[in-house]
Computed example of a mutant assay.
Amino acid sequence: MSQKVDVNLLDGVFKKTVKTVEASRKQIFEISENARRESGTMKLDIMEIRNEIGKVIDRVDKLELAYRKAKSRLAQVSRHFHSYTEEDIRVAYEEAHNIQIELTVSREREANLRRRRDELERRLRSLEETIVKAENLMSHIGVVLNYLTGDLSKVGEALETAKHHQMLGLRIIQAQEEERKRVSREIHDGPAQSMANVVLRTEIVERMLKNDRMVEAQMELHELKDMVRFSLSDVRRIIFDLRPMALDDLGLIPTIQKYCQTFEERTNLHINVAVFGKEQHLDSSVKAALFRLIQECLNNTFKHARAIKVQVKVEFQYEQVIIVVKDDGVGFVVSEKSSDGESFGILGMKERTQLLEGTMEIHSQPGQGTRVQFHIPIKR
């Protein structure tokens, strides 16, 4: 009976904690969104100020030239005083004086605009730092929320093996959160930035059209079209990385070949794909898992190996699929990598391999590249 009370109390504490954490996450999200909106407005203001500075600089250059000419004219009139009328002398003096005043005002305006631009750029950097910190906080809170909102109905039974399940669950959630963070960062740095830039540029085009600057507006629209086309390509790449639809349509090997070709173009790695045996019928989940293993190997190679060439080998045997990914990179000491707790990439590959009831081997030495081999059984 006492155990039931303890579980209920623990459940109540969890629920209150979840509510508090969710409220904090919403507040951080609002701070991030407000900062993002303000940074968008600030970028537009900076762009306008830069354009204005360019115009003022052109005006200052013209006024300086005009002022030199006016001073030369005034000096000429002064030297040949008797050759000019009183009206000519007055006009020359007033012209030089007026240009000097306008030049002084324009220089002061240029200095003020530059100070305003520098101040806005400092504030923009501060806002961007705030956005990054808020995103990191939301990522950490996401891990906590996912862990707290799990199935708590069997808390009593789970306490018996709490340490093992807690570590395993936390590792999985952390791996998931890292993947979400990676996708979020890709979207933020790619399509989201491009779309924000499109919004800013369309506002500039609207202002150009209002001021009858048709040629400049057409040039801006042409650049906008290229930006949207590039963003669409970025979105398609992210979708492909999340779940290649070609796996179900074309099969495992064509999808791997297409991905390696795209990866090769994006990273300048030279990737050779070799296939042995005839591709066999595999469950959709198994095909996706095998594809993810190769994808993670290539990502690790690109991030850490500093390799030039990568070989991907897929061999279909009657009872198993053998996958080997080998690079000519810097390599590492496998035992030290294991003692460091392993990266999320290696941990994720090991867990995925275990789910497939297969085995994973890593062979590497400093300066001798890395070879990762998977043996995945085929269930018939």
Rank of each mutant, 00 (worst) to 15 (best):
K313W: 05
R371L: 04
A158P: 05
F276E: 13
A70R: 01
D234L: 02
S126M: 08
E160Y: 09
G142L: 11
P366I: 04
V286M: 13
L282F: 01
G251S: 13
F332N: 01
Q174D: 10
I376L: 07
D11P: 07
L224A: 07
S284M: 11
K210H: 14
G40H: 05
Q257M: 13
I253D: 02
G54F: 00
V5Q: 12
R114G: 07
V275T: 06
A111K: 10
K71Y: 02
G142Y: 02
E157R: 12
I89K: 10
D328T: 05
Q373T: 12
E315C: 06
I53L: 05
N211W: 05
S194Y: 00
R68V: 04
R36L: 11
L170S: 07
S106Y: 03
V334W: 02
L124V: 01
Q311L: 12
I323D: 04
H97E: 04
T359V: 08
G54H: 02
V330N: 04
V330H: 02
K19R: 10
K350Y: 01
I294Y: 01
L63R: 08
L200W: 08
Q193N: 10
G329P: 01
V235W: 04
F316V: 11
V5L: 08
I253R: 09
K313Q: 12
D11M: 04
R180G: 06
I172A: 09
R266W: 04
Q218I: 12
N146E: 11
Y84K: 13
I28K: 12
E121C: 02
L168R: 15
A35T: 06
R122V: 00
T359S: 13
G331L: 02
L221R: 05
E86L: 09
K69T: 15
S2G: 14
L44K: 09
L65T: 14
I173P: 07
V325S: 00
D249P: 09
D249W: 12
S153W: 03
I204C: 02
V372G: 01
Y93N: 14
A305N: 00
A66E: 01
I294S: 03
Q261S: 14
I376A: 05
G345S: 14
E216C: 04
V314W: 01
K278W: 02
S231M: 12
N34D: 13
F29G: 15
Y318I: 13
G54M: 04
A217T: 03
D6I: 13
K379G: 12
L9M: 11
E160L: 11
T20C: 09
F332I: 00
K154I: 08
L200G: 15
M349L: 14
K4G: 11
V143S: 06
M219H: 12
